[in-house]
Design a protein around this nucleic acid. Structure first.
Length: 328
DNA sequence: CATCAGGGCCCTG
DNA sequence: CAGGGCCCTGAT
């Protein structure tokens, strides 16, 4: 696949964000458990991330300029043309939402800082927020390429989708792909996608893109609806089932208590960490869900802290049993 | 070489 | 509500 010519984003604007405290920059801004894609790059203290926001292809750079208790982020917005104040404000607000920079963690931390399981996680990751860098549509695309595939294959599917339908951006001496507009994907013939080795997911990708292309799903409106309504609408999308919805309810809609389902591969890992079971002898899903009951309205947030903790650990030390489970 | 499961979901009976 | 089939890939 030949590389596209990159679109240059020559206008650079600096915005400032003061997150709520405590704020842990790196564990919020970067998730080692997520598979890596070419729309983003991370080094300690910095994350580059492209985004399609209100039809505008943007390059973002988040820079850590603060501390745990005195946090500050410089958010640089790179664009092709000059942006209005209102537009920039909307970008800022959206990033505060997506990265949960206004989340109040105090109650959660106070309630569980002595919890046997969470104690260690909080010690290291206190101030971390769950985060998803992109829109609901971005997330649905990722959810679809994840399905029934080893991580490695998901990565290559995502890459060929970017190469064929994404927009290559050049900013801050980086070249990164940006998400395509839903209307692009909505009109791709299924055969064309299948040639990219997307497999049967091609149908889901196209069908999920259509209501977004037609403006029938408005993410901002959806955020205001009840969890029940959100769930119903998501499950109505072809190719989106309970597992994907479980992720979306937390990551996109910020329901920290939504934990209805733990998939087998996740169950194996959590069971080992929480109950010390052998990796191939996990406790039942039911027992895991019962365990998380004690975290009440923070069930999903607690699971997220445990999850991120193990993947951060994996970055610095080798965890043999985990390597086998992830199967890169 | 064949077989199989993998970070699910849809459809059928 | 259980179970087969689905694209493709790399592991066995």
């Amino acid at each position: 696949m030949s590389r596209k010519k990159a679109k240059k984003l020559i206008i650079k604007t600096k915005l400032e964000i003061i997150p709520t405290t405590p704020f842990h920059f790196d564990s919020t801004i970067y998730k080692p458990g997520h598979f890596s894609t070419t729309d983003t790059e991370w080094i300690a203290g910095k994350r580059w991330q492209t985004t399609l926001w209100q039809e505008e292809t943007l390059g973002l750079l988040f820079e850590d300029k603060g501390t745990l208790m005195k946090p500050k982020i410089n958010l640089y917005v790179f664009s092709e043309r000059k942006l209005t104040k209102d537009f920039l404000r909307s970008v800022r607000n959206e990033m505060v939402y997506r990265f949960n920079l206004d989340l109040d963690l105090k109650e959660f931390i106070d309630s569980f800082k002595h919890d046997l399981v969470l104690r260690a996680c909080l010690k290291k990751l206190k101030g971390m927020r769950p985060m998803t860098h992109g829109s609901l549509y971005d997330y649905l695309v990722i959810a679809i390429v994840l399905q029934n595939a080893p991580v490695r294959r998901s990565v290559s599917m995502m890459q060929s989708l970017f190469e064929n339908y994404g927009v290559l951006l050049r900013y801050d001496r980086k070249e990164l792909y940006c998400m395509w507009k839903p209307e692009v994907m909505a009109n791709v013939p299924e055969e064309e996608l299948r040639k990219l080795k997307i497999g049967y997911r091609a149908k889901s990708l196209i069908r999920v893109s259509k209501p977004f292309a037609r403006g029938e799903i408005n993410e901002m409106e959806l955020r205001k609806k009840s969890p029940e309504e959100q769930k119903k609408i998501l499950l109505g999308l072809y190719g989106i089932g309970p597992q994907s919805v479980g992720y979306i309810m937390g990551d996109i809609f910020h329901h920290w208590d939504f934990l209805e389902h733990i998939s087998p591969w996740e169950g194996k890992i959590l069971s080992k960490i929480i109950f010390g079971t052998k990796i191939d002898r996990p406790v039942s899903e039911k027992k895991l869900l019962e365990f998380f009951e004690k975290y009440e309205k923070y069930k999903a947030l607690a699971a997220n802290y445990i999850w991120e903790d193990i993947f951060w650990k994996r970055k610095t030390q080798k965890i043999d049993w985990l390597e086998k489970e992830i199967r890169l």
